[in-house]
């Protein structure tokens, strides 16, 4: 009952492919869960199943004790579960502020469009995009679009936020900035699932790490234990990482 999010034996098939294979996972309030695994492991599918984009073929997903397995995305969103997209999905012909206002209006409890726009400015300030509030979203650089995704998710006033590779394609300086931002989000009391290929980032912020491989959860535990796990090293991190870690 104390778990914020719980997956019980969740599977998702696409034709013959088990993108998620009987995954059971629990997430407590205030955790920052790093979700890692090779390309095609099922990480994005897990986010899609939790958020209602895809429905689980079998198994059960509960959020704050409520069964959300078959809820459509907008219902899940309104319960306080936000996500960012691995491939950014802005509304290109809206301004940055309007993009964020949508989150505030439809899931964040803003009473009308005007108060949603006001709330949007706040979220934009939080991710340091306030000065671009009136720019069309299509004109932003990739790094800024990623932050726009974050601001949009934050405007929904979520209790859980799932970040699908928000740092991919960023340079070193931008990554440090993004890391600081993720910590600030956590400090707001928001629980975080972060999907990430850069181990530096995962280890830098996660309180716990879960590893997916071929749709199966092969490890779940404290970061330092998980990165030494033989199966994880073999499946994902590779010998090179293990050697470097040992050195």
């Amino acid at each position: 009952m104390s778990a914020l999010l719980r997956l019980e034996g969740v599977s998702r098939r696409f034709g013959g492919l088990a993108a998620l294979d009987s995954v059971s996972l629990e997430l407590g309030r205030g955790e920052i869960l790093g979700l890692i695994g090779p390309n095609g492991a099922g990480k994005t599918t897990l986010v899609n199943v939790v958020t209602g984009v895809h429905t689980a073929t079998s198994g059960r997903v509960t959020f704050e004790g409520q069964d959300i397995t078959r809820l459509p995305p907008h219902r899940v969103a309104r319960l306080g579960l936000a996500r960012t997209w691995q491939i950014v999905q802005p509304f290109p012909r809206m301004t940055v502020a309007e993009n964020v206002a949508a989150g505030a209006l439809f899931a964040g409890g803003a009473a009308d469009v005007a108060s949603a726009l006001a709330a949007a400015r706040e979220s934009l300030g939080f991710v340091n995009l306030a000065d671009l509030a009136d720019a069309p979203a299509a004109t932003l650089t990739l790094a800024r679009r990623k932050r726009l995704e974050l601001a949009r998710a934050l405007a929904m006033k979520p209790r859980l936020i799932m970040l699908d590779e928000v740092n991919a394609g960023l340079n070193t300086a931008e990554i440090d900035e993004a890391l600081a931002l993720i910590r600030r989000i956590a400090a707001e009391g928001i629980t975080i699932v972060i999907i990430e290929h850069l181990m530096k980032v995962v280890l830098g912020v996660s309180t716990r790490i879960a590893v997916l491989h071929h749709g199966r959860l092969i490890a779940d535990g404290a970061p330092q234990e998980v990165v030494r796990d033989k199966e994880v090293v073999a499946a994902y991190l590779g010998r090179r990482y293990a050697e470097r870690g040992a050195a």
Partner: peptide, 22 residues
């Protein structure tokens, strides 16, 4: 609100749903 929802749908329906648009 409905007009705003429609503009969101027009530009990206999947993203709209994820932001709470029915």
């Amino acid at each position: 609100r409905l007009g705003f929802a429609l503009r969101c749908i027009q530009q990206n329906e999947d993203a709209a749903g994820m932001l709470g648009v029915d």
